[in-house]
Amino acid sequence: MSAATLPSSDVIPAHAPGMISNILTLAWRELRDALRARSFLLYSLAFLALGLGVSYVSAAGTGSLGLSGFGRTTAGLINIVLLVVPLMALTTGASAIAGDRERGMLLFLLAQPVSRLEVVLGKFLGLSGALIACITLGLGACSLVLAWQGGATEPRTMLWLASLSVLLALSMLSVGMLVSALARKASVAVGTGVFLWLALVFVTDLGIMAGTLALRLPVRSLFFLTLSNPLQAFKMWALHSIDASIDVLGPAGLYAMDTYHDTLPWMFGTSLAAWIVLPLVAAALIFRTRSPV
């Protein structure tokens, strides 16, 4: 009893839209929603306030001696980025899927002619857009304050910092979406996101410190452990982009410079890229098999 013999099984021409078109449509909705969300506004304001604070204070400190131009401002901004951007991206990503699932929206969306991969990529793209807007707005405002205060930083530095912050944000968004695909409840997902933030920002670094002191870790292990943390990869890359060197990071930094020379930026890039791609792929695979309700 083959399907083709039955009148009801005649293939009816179907014209679902292409993948790119769907992704863009879904991304647009996600972006629109994110830019209007209150939490996002709060993050943006926090980032802006901290960044402006650092810019103002550091410019006032070294600026009064005419010592601008030695990049301490950048170190302060790197610190702020490390603190705020991962939190923002992780929680945003974590609520992306789980929130929709919990409110039953996912059901209606997936009943439309869209594939689940398109939904994941569309959300990722849309939220990336929102994060990019937040980062560029924050660092753009910082640049203006620094220019007003006396140009303590090279424009090139700010552009590098913004680009690398975006990569960091994408990696954390990706991890957040993996959490979101796994979690049943939005609150659990966001909680896990915050926990991961704590882990990546504080716990792993403190662990590495303890390990280095207790186990006398050789510089090589120390460097690779640190490199595997996307936040640290971002930090090292940012320093490298400014000074063309990470020798400011002491013996382990010098080891990396001496051993890997020009491949270092590629290594930082690989670490961040892996943190962007792998969790997103995992999120897509899990989302494919999970029920939308």
Partner: peptide, 14 residues
Amino acid sequence: DREPKLRLLLFSPA
């Protein structure tokens, strides 16, 4: 000062 290798973690929130 005790363990200069840890400079690798400079500028981190940790």
